[in-house]
């Protein structure tokens, strides 16, 4: 029997995530870097790039967990305050005289447990993760404030190996971030679990009826994401030797933004760790470039929002063009009012 051929290479490349999402981000990163470097050659020189990576390692680790969730069609808003809580618990444990390693293991176990609870509630009771984890955000913030008595907890031991040590001249947080990206990329691309995540996110009901363990897959994603958030919280705490209960309240939204920049969609089924990595780096490079160009800091959030909106609009236009309508009706459809108000329901 003859085999059915693959699509032509050119077509496959044009449709691939690498070309559609990652290449434009890399181009943007290079353009911004070169432009800024032209004005101040410290941008690419010296340790600035290492600093940029160090700055985003905490966000990056959280964003990788979020990538798994988003690919599975889920979401977790509570990772930011969970990370802060992890830092506070870690610092408190050390101050109470435990060993560093035990403190880390305890924190990771607690975070995994919270992830397990979210996962079971979402998969078992079909609670929308958005609302559930929105509640969790406040809950974790409160617990962190209670444990720390509302003020930053200085850690007496300094968790040197977690936050400040250098291997081959590069700080450990960067290593952790890079290793997690690579492992996640391999898992998502090459393992059964990774395929189940994408299948669940693409069409949960079809996956379930096929026989894919969709509930277990979702629970695992929540557990992994929460554990990574806990680890990120510990790294953040170790870097400043302080468990700050108010640390990083923006991290959850920034992580989601990075995933979406890297090709993820909140509808599920798309998103890749490498894409997220590039998304995270872009956000950091933009931030750093603003500082180098002496832009006043209150513009930071506006630029962050602008980058995100620009990226999703470009992606949406690309998606529309890929459908058979061609490009022309896109503008027309903006002005044509159809009965969007009514839901489309199939029997």
């Amino acid at each position: 029997m003859t085999e059915t051929p693959r699509a032509p290479m050119k077509q496959r490349l044009l449709r691939s995530d690498a070309v559609r999402f990652m290449a434009p981000l890399v181009v943007a990163i290079l353009a911004i870097s070169l432009y800024t470097n032209g004005k101040n050659d410290n941008f690419l020189g010296g340790d600035n790039f290492k600093n940029i990576l160090l700055q985003v390692s905490v966000l990056g680790i959280i964003a990788i967990g979020q990538t798994l969730l988003i690919a599975a069609g889920q979401l977790d808003l509570s990772v930011a305050t969970l990370a802060a809580l992890a830092g506070v618990i870690g610092a408190t444990r050390i101050n109470d005289g435990g060993s560093e390693l035990w403190a880390v293991i305890l924190v990771l176990l607690i975070c995994a447990l919270f992830g397990l609870i979210w996962g079971l509630l979402v998969a078992g009771l079909r609670i929308p993760p958005f609302i559930l984890t929105l509640g969790g955000t406040s809950l974790f913030a409160s617990i962190a404030l209670r444990i720390s008595k509302s003020s930053p907890v200085p850690a007496r031991e300094r968790f040197e190996w977690l936050g400040r040590a250098k291997i081959l001249g590069i700080q450990t947080p960067i290593w952790f971030f890079l290793i997690i990206v690579v492992v996640a990329a391999l898992v998502m691309r090459y393992t059964r679990f990774g395929r189940h995540v994408y299948a669940t996110g693409s069409n949960e009901e079809a996956s379930y009826l096929t026989g894919i363990p969709t509930a277990r897959t979702k629970v695992l994603c929540f557990v992994i994401s929460s554990t990574l958030a806990g680890f990120a919280g510990l790294v953040a705490m170790a870097r400043i030797s302080t468990g700050d209960p108010r640390n990083g309240s923006q991290l959850a939204l920034q992580a989601i933004a990075a995933v979406v920049l890297g090709g993820g969609t909140l509808a599920g089924g798309r998103g890749s760790p490498i894409g997220t990595f590039i998304g995270v780096v872009l956000l950091a490079v933009v931030q750093s470039a603003l500082t180098f160009n002496n832009v006043q800091t209150f513009w930071n959030d506006a630029v962050f929002g602008g980058v995100l909106i620009f990226a999703v609009v470009v992606t949406a236009i690309g998606d529309l063009r890929r459908r058979r309508f061609g490009a022309r009706p896109i503008l027309a459809s903006l002005f044509q009012r159809t009965s969007r108000a009514s839901a489309e329901v199939k029997p």
């Binding site: 079809a206 096929t210 089924g269």
Partner: peptide, 23 residues
């Protein structure tokens, strides 16, 4: 469309889903 296929994914992804489900 709703219960059987991963509509937005390729034919490859859809036909190998059985193998990936059995695992």
């Amino acid at each position: 469309k709703r219960q059987g296929l991963l509509l937005e994914r390729t034919l490859v992804d859809n036909v190998v889903l059985g193998q990936q489900a059995v695992g």
